[in-house]
Each structure stands twice: as C-alpha cells, then as structure tokens.
Design a protein around this nucleic acid. Sequence first.
RNA 1: GGAGAGAUGACCGAGCGGUUUAAGGUGCACGCCUGGAAAGCGUGUGUACUCCAAAAGGGUACCGAGGGUUCGAAUCCCUCUCUCUCCGCCA
Length: 429
Amino acid sequence: MLDLKKIRDNPQWVEERLASRGRAYNLQKVYQLEAAKRALQTETENLQARRNAISRQIGQLKGKGQDVSALMAEMVQCGPQLQELQQQLATMESELLAVLAELPNLPDETVPLGRDEQDNLEICRWPDEQQPARKAFEELPHWEIGQRLGILDFDAGILVAGARFTVLRGAGARLNRALIQFMLDLHSGEHGYTEIMPPFLVNRESLFGTGQLPKFEEELFAARDDALFLIPTAEVPVTNLVRGEIIEEERLPLKFVAWTSCFRREAGAAGRDTRGLIRQHQFDKVELVWITRPEESGAALEQLTRDAEQVLQRLELPYRRVALCTGDLGFASCKTYDLEVWLPGQGCYREISSCSNTGDFQARRMQARLRRKEGRKVELLHTLNGSGIAVGRTLVALLENFQQADGSVVIPDALRPYMGGVEILRPQE
RNA sequence: GGAGAGAUGACCGAGCGGUUUAAGGUGCACGCCUGGAAAGCGUGUGUACUCCAAAAGGGUACCGAGGGUUCGAAUCCCUCUCUCUCCGCCA
C-alpha cells in the first residue's frame, strides 16, 4: 500500500511513477476522499470531545447528588448525530482503503522504463556472456526426456487431479526432494538463513498483507468451508511472520528460507505452457525472505539475488539475470530481478526465480515496523522475497541441460549426495 | 466434536456502568545519591489518526475482533476469533 501522506504531499511525482508501469492510475478519487475524510474526522472528533466532556460532568455532578437533567437533555441529540457522523466516516475510510489497496507499488528510480517483458534489461549471463552452445544431437524438451525415463507421469496427474497436475515417480520424486534438500541446506547452512516450515493454508489478513488480496483472489485456491486459501508462494506465510510486530532495530535483518508447495489457479494462462512442468497448479519452491531496515533493502536485494544465483551455479545450470522494466513489475514490487535458466529443449531462457524488493509496501499493509535504537522512533520495515529457487522448473532445467544423446540424464555433482550416490538416470525398457 | 475457564499497556496484575485522564508492581530510560556499583529517591515510559505553517501543545480512537444497550462501556448484552483445562476422535 502506498503512503497516503506521500500521495498528498507529492501527487504529481506519485502519478508519474505509477504511470511508468504502463497504464494510467487516476488518483482523483484518493485526493477527494482523503480531503473529505479529514474534514469529517475533525468534525466527528470535536463532537466526541464535547460528548466526553459533558458525560464526565454528568458523572461528577451525579456523584455529588446534583441535578443533571439539563445536561442529559442536551446530550440526547448528540447521540444520533454522532452516530451518523461516525457511520459516514467509517464508510469513507473503508472506501479510501479500498482504493489505496488496489494501487500497485511505485517502481524504484533505478528500474528501467519499459512497457513489457520485451523491455527488460539483461544484466549478465552465466557461465559466460555467450548463449549456451547447442549439443551435437537434437535436444529434447523435458516432457519427452521425463517420460522416457519414466519419472514424469502427466497422465497420472490428470487422472488423480486434472490438467496442470503431474505425478513424479521414482527417481523423479527423489530428484524433486533432493533439490529441496540441497537448496535448504545451502541457504540455511552457508547463507545464514533461518529455516521456516510454515502453514500451506493462510487467512485473508496474511494475503492482504503481502498484496495478493483483494486484487488477485481469482489466482488463489480457496478452502470451501473455511476462510482459508492455499498459499500461492511461501512469501505469504513467511513475510507475514512480522505482521503487526514492532521489531528492535538490532535484530535486523531477519533472513528466512522456506520450502513449500505452492498452489496457483493460473486463471489467465489458458493455453500457455500446457505441456510439461513449466506451469502447474501445484509446484514446490524454496523461498527466501528478508526483513530489513529501510536503508538496507537495496543492498539486500543484490545479496538475496546472489544467494539465489548460487543455486544455479552449484547445479551448473546456465542462466541470465534480468532487471524487470517498470511495465513488467509485479504488483507489490518496487524492483525485481528475474533469473532465467537456459532450456535447450525449448531454445530459450525461462524464469526460474524472481527476486523483489517491496520496500515498505507490504510492511504498511501488515503494519510491520521497527524501533530505532536512537530516538526510540517507530518506522515501517522493508520486506524482500525471492525464489531460491523454483524446484519444478529446476527439475526441468536439469533434464534438458544434462540430457545425453542416448536419452540418459547426468546428475550434477552438487546433487549426488542427495541422490544416494546416483550419477545418471537411464531410460527404461 | 462436547463441557468449562479465560483474553487488560514491554511483562505481571487490579478494575466489573461515571472520582480510572487504565490502580499497583516488574522491566526499561533519564536524573539525584555513590570513589564505582547495588539499594534508595525522583521523573518519564505505547500505537494510529488528526488540529496547529512548524515546534510546543491539544483532540480522537485503541483493554482479543465486530456489533448493540446507555447521556456515558475495559466494565452490561449479542456474534465471532484465539488460548488454556478435561472428555471424545485422529496422523
């Protein structure tokens, strides 16, 4: 959520920043509501002050056994009038909140201007600046590799659940688990993150806090009889760990890593990535979350992204880092780096991690604050999140990058200890 | 799922319709005292919004959440959420 005071003090700048996302946001309603609300608030509070004063007087006089009927008579009109004002005020406040809650975050000044993903800025490639060379044989897409190996069973997914669900079998299931374990060990053991195992179902308050609600409800799976939703990302339960908290400055930054399954309805994605594991209703992801002081979040995004890149490097998967342009930025983000892994089966780079600084945008929704050592002042925290990294897509990348001419797939060194020493997956038959 | 108890400021804990602008204690901060510390004494101690050009200083709201009764609600009524105890069921 945006800072109302900032909107009030610097409307032009805010509108300009919002417009850089590629569509016009009309803030007229905010200005009007805000001004009207303040006027109404003053009026209401003045009346409340009067009521309180007279009520106190009544109490005191009554205590002395004096007559209070004159004062009581005066107060009789006060009640309904006050109730009317309070109701108007409450309506106005919730209208204002509703408008504010749907405005996206302001892009950071360092974010490249652009309309859509075409305008994203490539920062670097790994292991070098070349596009990875094609192999001497025809490289297959992962769904074919996986089916030949007998580890990806798309038909079974459809059978037990439906489209966009997949069953992993044998070494496929093991590989998925090995990747999770490898990533968690790396981040908690070497990068200093605290491992979290959060609930996979969350309430509305949490989803509002991180910005999925109210605007993106159609993207979520909901529990029918309870006010709970399946998490679309671990960002939701993990970031909300600080909701409503005031954290002592010296405890920051907080760094969390969590494996969860993620559940997304993919409502707007009909027809896209219908084959394979790229776009599923359920997938595993290891997520990184930082809670920082405001002045730290810029540097934190760089570090968080490097931590995510480490996963790809250790797994020897070629990738590039891309800075999203203003038009491609997510709702809550003020700056995002995507990591895109090379997929030879498709001959392109695909997103495998998205690392975002949300500044104080989520913190304001969550009322997550810090207390400064000096001055004891309270300020909003900054929150960041990034995939470290998407497990299903990593599995895809492994299959496609380490496939051999004979249909086998080599397991990279870093993963072998987690695969019980298995070094190569061979086609069945 | 059934029965009961409860939810008050950083923490403990009183209050159960108007002398509470939330008693008292602990903690914390500052000051006095001390060679230094402890003890003792004194002062202060939340959040949000708002009024004022700003500061100083006011005002309003917040005693789990939301409604209601009342001139006035932490206190009475209703609904919900959560916690604890016992019973049942269960990985």
